[in-house]
Design a protein around this nucleic acid. Sequence first.
DNA 1: TGTACATCAGTGAACGCGCGTTCACTGATGTAC
DNA 2: TGTACATCAGTGAACGCGCGTTCACTGATGTAC
Lengths: 205, 205
Amino acid sequence: MPKRGYHHGNLREALVEAALTLIEEKGPSGFTLSEAAKRAGVTPAAVYRHFEGREDLIAEAARQGYEIFADLMEYAYETGQPSALASFEATGRAYLAFARRYPGHYVAMFESGISINRTPELAMAANRASGVLEKAAEQLSEHIPPEKRPPAAMFSAHIWAMSHGVVELFTRGGAGSRSPFSAEDLLESGIGVYLRGLGLVPPDG
Amino acid sequence: MPKRGYHHGNLREALVEAALTLIEEKGPSGFTLSEAAKRAGVTPAAVYRHFEGREDLIAEAARQGYEIFADLMEYAYETGQPSALASFEATGRAYLAFARRYPGHYVAMFESGISINRTPELAMAANRASGVLEKAAEQLSEHIPPEKRPPAAMFSAHIWAMSHGVVELFTRGGAGSRSPFSAEDLLESGIGVYLRGLGLVPPDG
DNA sequence: TGTACATCAGTGAACGCGCGTTCACTGATGTAC
DNA sequence: TGTACATCAGTGAACGCGCGTTCACTGATGTAC
């Protein structure tokens, strides 16, 4: 989106993109409103035509992240249908794929310290995303005998936690990145063992 | 440690403690050298008698965290002996307990963006900590039939990831904290399902 | 026990910096006639 | 088609702030004699 003279044309989006790049490069605290404005080719004051301030800009970046995230999860879910198991596995993988492909969004969503309830739009987008994972878990849980069936919300939380942990520790040179295994392999095998533990996958695989 | 006149007495430790409190209260980016000095009852310049600068102070806080962490894991491991399974489960639980009891240390270690290789002392402490978890995994792995035995480093990574994910998402009012389950319950049940998947725990529990 | 002196932990003033935010303004755009 | 005018996106200067860091200093402590 080239700058065209005095009026930018699409400054709002340009600012969000600059913010995402900055967050990706320098982490959530390395992001500054002034630097984002500079990268968009504009004075810091211009930002206030489109956002209430620094926090509001991060919130919008996070919101867009949740929308993309929810779309990806939804698509992954549908790809696995009609198999409940395949759908569940696919949403787990989609989590890691999202973190890889949209690192700026990921950080804005999960590491910027922004509250999910900062704006109604942000809360709605976040709810839509977690709804997909819960739906997949719900459907999967019907394949477990009722008397030994854990609550669906519980194992959707387990998968979410394992996925998040793998992203934080084993991508981007984090604390555990000297591991000999790729994040993808770790998550794939981890989910595999977990689902075997639920009795949903044959003990040999 | 009361201030005693012109000379503080134990400023180095007081600064680390102030830093930990600040990090706990305001997050890693909310921590400032000046504020830590103020809380220790001292001028910002005094900090430079004991640390090279801001980063060095965080690194020391993280190092102390890894030492405590390694001690706790070691202790948990020994508590579970001679049962490999009990030891492994105990180290998983110790992870969450550590995050709860030492939130400042936890954040300094895993969320401050500090590199583990910043100082040799920090790297050594971190290695000792991960060594305990790997030892537990190694020992546990001997109870799995060799032909279907995954590498020990792999399931120590799984447990680490799940623990870390549970802490990040389900403690401290994070993204998933509206969950009806406590972090402790989630981790306990998650590890349970996982170990069942490894064939180390009877299918009914 | 008393005095001189070396040590060094902490002071306080100063620095340059980049930050988020405000304000009155200017100039490009698009619409009404 | 041409002109007058309203709109409003972006400017640029200014603000107060707290930051990390430096420096020459001061005064408390502890040791040698």
